[in-house]
């Protein structure tokens, strides 16, 4: 009991430090980097959904982008059709995408490895056709226009003038902080241990009395809720539509989770920062070489792919794992 309390306090402290650090960073950066940092915070929630699903429970999904889209559409419809505030819309996004996760979980509990990967990939491809089929509600190819709105008056009077990018960041960070806290608590709880047992040996876990399929479905529900929140925030930047949630978004989340470290929260943070800033970093590093546009466009993809390989073969635990190992030596 005492030990659990201490972990809880530690998690809370880490989450608070994270929030303060991001808010402080947000105050000194220029709008472009504020926007990038906001995207990191949004995708961080999405990468956490992969950490929970793949890192903790061993199920792979290539359709997290589709669940992000479900969250995005749920929040956009709440704002546009019900006229509610973005906060209600975000709660709605979590509920709707968790329900979608429940449905998917029923199918997924019966599938393993490559079957699950393929099925979720088809799901991610099928979703845009839904947007076109129900064009009058979902806005077809173009999508629905939504935004974060204006910062509330009390925030402006406390911090002075707040730009749109800065408001995106400030609206996102508390939610990211909550997601971080929730993940940390799930991982150190009984539920987290059951999920890890299923990941490591399904039959052994089942023999110990863990209900494998119920737990797998529950993982999908929780993970989808995270993805939905992430997707709703991601869409609130301007548009909710098929082009905002392409298939590459699912792969981006997976890449971030793997590069950073599939099994740790720190890894998820490192990974989401990496996938957002890597293209900028490569552009900056290769500027002296004056590469043609054609090569420049594809270089981040190439380097991302190579990094993914090196990670999987040489250091499957990701950057977080490597840092941790170094510290312990």
């Amino acid at each position: 009991m005492f030990k659990y309390k201490r972990t809880g306090i530690r998690n809370l402290a880490i989450a608070l430090i994270f929030t303060v650090a991001i808010i402080a960073l947000g105050a000194i950066l220029d709008p472009y980097n504020q926007g990038q940092l906001a995207v990191v915070s949004m995708l961080f929630i999405g990468v956490l959904s992969v950490t929970l699903l793949t890192g903790t429970s061993g199920q792979i999904s290539l359709g997290q982008g589709a669940l992000m889209a479900v969250g995005g559409y749920a929040s956009a419809l709440t704002i546009l059709n019900l006229g509610l505030s973005i906060w209600f819309a975000l709660v709605m996004a979590i509920i709707v995408s968790a329900l979608a996760g429940l449905l998917l979980g029923f199918a997924a509990a019966r599938l393993t490895g490559p079957y699950l990967a393929g099925t979720t990939l088809v799901l991610a491809l099928a979703l845009p056709s839904l947007a076109i089929r129900f064009e009058s509600v979902l806005g077809g190819d173009v999508g629905l226009n939504v935004d974060f709105g204006n910062p509330p008056a009390w925030l402006v009077s406390a911090f002075g003038e707040i730009g749109y990018e800065q408001w995106q960041l400030y609206a996102t960070v508390p939610l990211t902080c909550l997601a971080l806290l929730a993940t940390a608590n799930i991982l150190s709880s009984r539920t987290g241990r059951m999920w890890r047992a299923i990941r490591d040996h399904e039959s052994a876990a089942s023999l110990m009395g863990i209900n494998v399929s119920n737990n797998k479905i529950f993982t999908f529900v929780v993970s989808s809720g995270f993805a939905g929140l992430s997707g709703a925030l991601y869409g609130l930047r301007g548009i909710v539509g098929p082009s905002v949630y392409p298939i590459s978004l699912s792969l981006l989340l997976l890449t971030g989770a793997i590069l950073g470290g599939l099994r740790s929260i720190a890894g998820a943070l490192i990974g989401s920062a990496l996938v957002v800033f890597l293209p900028d970093l490569i552009e900056w590093a290769t500027r002296p070489l004056a590469l043609s546009e054609q090569i420049g466009n594809y270089l981040p993809g190439l380097i991302g792919g190579v990094l993914l390989h090196l990670t999987v073969i040489l250091n499957p635990g990701g950057i977080a794992h490597a840092l941790h190992r170094h510290k312990n030596k």
Binding site: I60, T112, R199, D200, E202, L251, P316
Partner: peptide
């Protein structure tokens, strides 16, 4: 290491092949 569990042995090659696709 991380590949020791049965579920990850099924998952990691999928990720590796996606990496090849990207490259």
């Amino acid at each position: 290491g991380i590949l020791a569990s049965e579920s990850m042995r099924a998952t990691v090659p999928v990720i590796a092949s996606l990496g090849i696709l990207g490259i």
